[in-house]
Design a protein around this nucleic acid. Structure first.
Lengths: 188, 188
DNA sequence: TTAAAGGTAAACCGATCGGTTTCTTTTGTC
DNA sequence: GACAAAAGAAACCGATCGGTTTACCTTTAA
């Protein structure tokens, strides 16, 4: 067993390519070339491209949420401050080179069947991010944590789209200001 | 010259298929079959698939904004009410059968190059919608119409994503309530 | 020592991709 | 009725798609 398993190599490279260039636009041949792996090996680890796509989405969810939680808790110490810090974390994300929007929004755009496993994983990801925020809202003592978390989540999605599609360079900052308004009404 | 030109037939069908199934996933053969048109005719009217995609996006922008303005002005009479009515219009859009999110968000997901003409048209569309809202905000006498329009626009984008990706069934209603908060601070 | 497991490279598969070409038929106009 | 433009049907192009197969090469553990 090598330090980095072949499976991990493939997922890592597929993650990069799918995120950067889209799912349908990225062929298997491209993935195996850049991962430095043979086609047979890929199909030893994944039954089909669909299964690989699903595995990369799950990996992305894991990496994204871990980073979100780590950075949020690094930037602020109290739950209330953390609810705002979330917007600083996504602002930093928007600045990353290679930023290509939200991979799950992108996946939803390419897989039109709502029952497609990719769509289910994408909806699940959005729910999990919202769950994290609701946890912070509860800790902060919000009157209606569920409502507050859904409001902040909507602002996050809006900021992503305004930045990526609308090329609005300060959408994260605007969303943070807007979030502050709802924080006050939910916590004062 | 027939009542409906071949060009219009092609664009109409391409619009449906691209919106419903995605751009890369929709082949030329499928479009000509469903449009009832020969391949030669399609390539008489459009130099390439890329050009057809671009034409359908422009058509979509026209149809979408015309509908948005018409419905908004049908539902409410004063600019202030119209700013809120926008959210009722998108709520109705979300309910339409065949709703597949925002075609321009979807396009941005598939065309990763920011300089791609499709991306430029998509950004332009978002700007034009925002412009319309800013016009309403000006008429309503908002203190900072530009800021208000960007806030409301961000809420619209958030509602679209929460509905389509997150499967949140009341995102439009939530966005409307949130919009009302900013309307009050900008107009009172 | 050996044999299984897992790897590589490359040929191969049928299907589909975007796009072109050829030839025939229809269509609208003088 | 003659004629040119537009459209249709279908063969064809090279490239790529997702996926399989074959043959050979390492590693590793019994």
């Amino acid at each position: 067993m090598p330090a980095i398993s072949k499976r991990e190599q493939i997922i890592t490279e597929a993650l990069r390519l799918f995120y950067q260039n889209g799912f349908n636009a990225t062929g298997i041949d491209r993935i195996i070339t850049e991962a430095g792996v043979s086609k047979k090996t890929l199909y030893n680890h994944f039954r089909s491209k669909d299964e690989l796509v699903l595995a990369t989405l799950r990996k992305r969810d894991e990496l994204f949420r871990n980073n979100l939680m780590r950075e949020t808790e690094r930037l602020a110490s109290t739950p209330r401050e953390q609810l705002l810090a979330v917007f600083d974390v996504i602002a930093a994300w928007f600045q990353e080179k290679g930023f290509s929007g939200c991979m799950f929004i992108n996946a939803a755009a390419e897989f039109s069947d709502t029952q497609d496993p990719c769509r289910i994983v994408s909806a699940e990801h959005k729910r999990l991010v919202c769950d994290y925020i609701r946890g912070l809202a509860e800790q902060a003592g919000a009157k209606d944590p569920d409502n507050l978390s859904k409001q902040l989540n909507l602002l996050i999605e809006g900021a992503i789209v305004c930045t990526y599609v609308g090329a609005d360079s300060d959408a994260a900052g605007r969303a943070k200001e807007m979030a502050n308004v709802f924080l006050h009404s939910a916590l004062d």
